[in-house]
Structures are given as C-alpha cells and as structure tokens.
Design a protein around this nucleic acid. Sequence first.
DNA 1: ATACACCTTTACGCAACGTCAATGTCAAAC
DNA 2: GTTTGACATTGACGTTGCGTAAAGGTGTAT
Lengths: 254, 254
Amino acid sequence: MEYTVQKLGKMAGISTRTLRYYDEIGILKPARINSSGYRIYGPQEVDRLQQILFYRELGVSLENIKDIVTSPAFDGSAALKEHHEKLLEKRGQLDLLIANVEKTIALTEGRIKMADKEKFEGFKQKLIDDNEKQYGKEIREKYGKDAVEKSNSKLKGMSQEQYAAAEKLGADVMETLKDAFATGDPAGELAQKAADLHRQWLSFWWDSYTKEAHAGVAQMYVDDERFTAYYDIEQPGLAVFLRDAVMIYTGMGQ
Amino acid sequence: MEYTVQKLGKMAGISTRTLRYYDEIGILKPARINSSGYRIYGPQEVDRLQQILFYRELGVSLENIKDIVTSPAFDGSAALKEHHEKLLEKRGQLDLLIANVEKTIALTEGRIKMADKEKFEGFKQKLIDDNEKQYGKEIREKYGKDAVEKSNSKLKGMSQEQYAAAEKLGADVMETLKDAFATGDPAGELAQKAADLHRQWLSFWWDSYTKEAHAGVAQMYVDDERFTAYYDIEQPGLAVFLRDAVMIYTGMGQ
DNA sequence: ATACACCTTTACGCAACGTCAATGTCAAAC
DNA sequence: GTTTGACATTGACGTTGCGTAAAGGTGTAT
C-alpha cells in the first residue's frame, strides 16, 4: 500500500500541511519521493504516523514524540506516567479556573441585580487587591482542598437543567433566609427551613454531605468577606444569621 | 501616584515587556509620555491593569479583554459565560485525554507482564487503526456518555491510595475470574464472586451503581475488541465468561 | 567623570500548524 | 488533443503572548 499526502491525511484525519510539517521537522519522512517530487508513504510510515498521532492525542509535544519514535530504547511507559502527572496538574489548574469563573459570574449577576455598579467596581477591585488573585488557592488553604475539589468534581457532570435547578435552589435559599431573618430567630421554623434548603443546595455541588462540612461552609460565609458580602448585600447580618441557623440545623453549634 | 514601567510591573507582578506589549496592542496605554519618552502610568491605569489581570487570570484572551475594558457598556457577564462554556469543553477534552493515558498505562503495564512486546505493538496499532483514534468519543457514542463522565469525575477525586486499592481490586477480579473460568460455570459460586468483585471495582469509578450499567459494561467487554483483548489475553473466552457471570449476577440475563 | 540602573524601539523566537500564493502534474471528460 | 478539476509542490507569512537580546539614550549617585 502506497499513499500520497492526501490519501494518508484522509486516512489519518490530518491535513496535508501537517504531513509536510512532519516531514520538515523530521519525525515522519516519506518512504520515497517519486519522479514528480510527490511524497510517497509506505506501510512503515503509516505505522509510524499512527504512533505519532497516538502520542499527540495524549498531548505529548512533537519534540518529545520525536524522541519516542526515533529512539528504539525509549521508555514509553515512564514518559507516559510523567505526562500523566502533568495532565492531572493541568486539570487541577483548570478546575480552579472554572470555579473562579463560576464564582465571578454568580457574583456579578447577583451584584448587577441588587447593587449599583460603582460599588461593584470597588468591590471587584478590592477582590483583586491584596493578592487575592490567588482566589481558589487561598480558599483551598483556608478551608481544605477537599471541599473545593468535591465541588469541582460534581460540577463537571451537571447538565444545563441541573445547573438551572441548582441556581433556583440558591435563590430559594436566599428568599427563605430573608423571611427567616425577619423573625430574628435562627432556631425558628423558617430559619431551619432555610438551613435545609441550603443543605439541598450544597448537595448539588458536593458528592457527599456531612454535617461537619456544612457547618464549616456556614462558618466560611462569616469568616470570608467575599461570601459575607454576597449574603449581606441583600441584608446586612444575613451571613451570620445563616451560619447560626446552620449550626443549629447540623447540631454543630456545640 | 505615578509609575514607570518597572515600578508598575513590580507592583502587579508582571514584566515590563508585558506592559509595553499591552501598550502596543492598545489595551493599556500610559497616562502620558514624559520628555524622555518614558511611559508614565497614573491611578486610572493601575485600576485598569488590575481589571486586565483579573480577566487574564480567568483565562480570557487579551483580544476579549480588550472588548471588556474598552467598551464600558460591554456585557462582561455574557462574555464570562461564553468563556465558561469553553472552559468546560476544554476540561471535557482533558478528561478524555487523561482517561486515555491511564488506559494506556494500564495496558502497557499489564501487557509487559504477560505478553510479548510484538503483540502489544500490533494491538496498539490496531487500536488506532480504523479511525479508532477517537477512542473516548467512540465509547461515548456506543455506550452513552454518562458512564464515561461518571468514570472521569470519580477519578478526579481519588487519592493515590484509593487508586492503588482500585488497581488491586482489578487484579483480584482477574484472578478470581480465572479460577471461576476453570469451573466453567458462570452461575457458580466463584463466578458470582468475580462478578461481585467486579461490581466493587466498578464502584471505584462510578458515583452511582446500577445493575443496568453493570450489565452494559459487561456486554461492552464482549462487543468491543479492545476490552475483549484485555481480558482474553489472560485466557481466551474470559470476556464472554465475565459477561455471562455478570448477567446472572445482575439478573439482567433476561 | 564614571558607573550603573533604568528607559526606549526594533525585531527575532517559541509551537504547530492554517492559509494563501504561484506553479506543476495526473486522470478523466470533451 | 486539449481542457478541466483535483491533486501535488515549495515558499512564506500569520497566529498568541510575551521572552530575550541588541543597540542605544536617560537619571542619579558616587
């Protein structure tokens, strides 16, 4: 079987430009050049291309692929493991990024609805100030990375509808919470209902629910001004009230 | 407060080159240029830089950031949402990639222990052949993407120890399965134990277990030659035997 | 006066190709 | 036999977000 660039390209699902590039950088040279200067590839080249594409699929750089396919003694297994590590790291970073974007979206949306833009700007500035760019990292350190990771992992699998449902639940929490706040009693029925809604809302983001984690998050709302602001912008004192309600709800108050 | 490039760069944690580049592409021009041609930045520029860096942190391209910071009426929220979509997609791809790498590592390790390298090479070639590069995608289409995503999402949160435990369980499955195969009875005690171990193993990868999904996977081992090969390389017929055992175990045989 | 840190513009380099441009070749249709 | 249309070739520039010289002017302390 002999192939020209286009045939091989079609078979492998890559462009002819790519094949010429691979020739250029020396990782896949054609078996021969015919009288008209056409690149002609044989079965060996097909195999090699398959190897190349395989590693490329895995995100290995062509530079490294070159080492892999040219050196026969290359330890592909070790390279794969190292690469695996890098991929996991990359995903971790990506997860943080996604969480941050989500948080930002939620914040801006909440803000735009209920506050003036000026303050928003000021707040956002403050957010970034004092090296808070490391947002996720900081939260990780403060409240343990497990919660953050749980949240991230759950989010992944969520469908649009689920996401919408979660958002609605979040709104419900806020509404019930405000009503409860009016009663002034965190142990009261309304407040406990708010705490329960909050648990349901959390369950959307976490794989497993525990009272401890729930209570921890509620405390976080009070400790971390970003979250405090999110709740208190509706009603000052709401974050503390929610924490108190959750503490009672979870029985973690003492 | 006025800043030269280096002072501002130091404050913001970026290089002077970056500042000159931002000037060049027009997303951050200095307040004025002094008599010697030096770039002088004022408080407004500091604020703007903070905004830019904020969005940059979120992975937004400078091109898009330009739109955000230059047009005051720009809908940053919508831009962020779009960006969010892209990030999710990216993570999906990354997950597939990671799954592929893990599978490859598992395969190579298993193979090296129990088969000659030649066959392995042939198999890998075959794997990629017939457009099977779209590995994950294909599996997704064939057996529903839910299972794949479940698997991915679970993997993320696993610790090293958990991973090791899962691998041991996998080995147990194989061992028990081989013993069971010797009896020839997929309904027998050993075979059912193997099926149960297999369920446990699956539970490592899936958030939720259902009989239907379990049976589906077992069928997949038979339908998909890649998996068939994985089991049958130890003992021809093992994949079919496991499927039969699981069908009985789950009661999905009919 | 000299050193030394700071500033400037210009411009190439990076990864992995995409995308013209200008031109030659092949098989089939007229 | 020629025309057409699909294919091939080699350049060579564009992409992103800067890093990294190079070659030179400026500011200030000694």
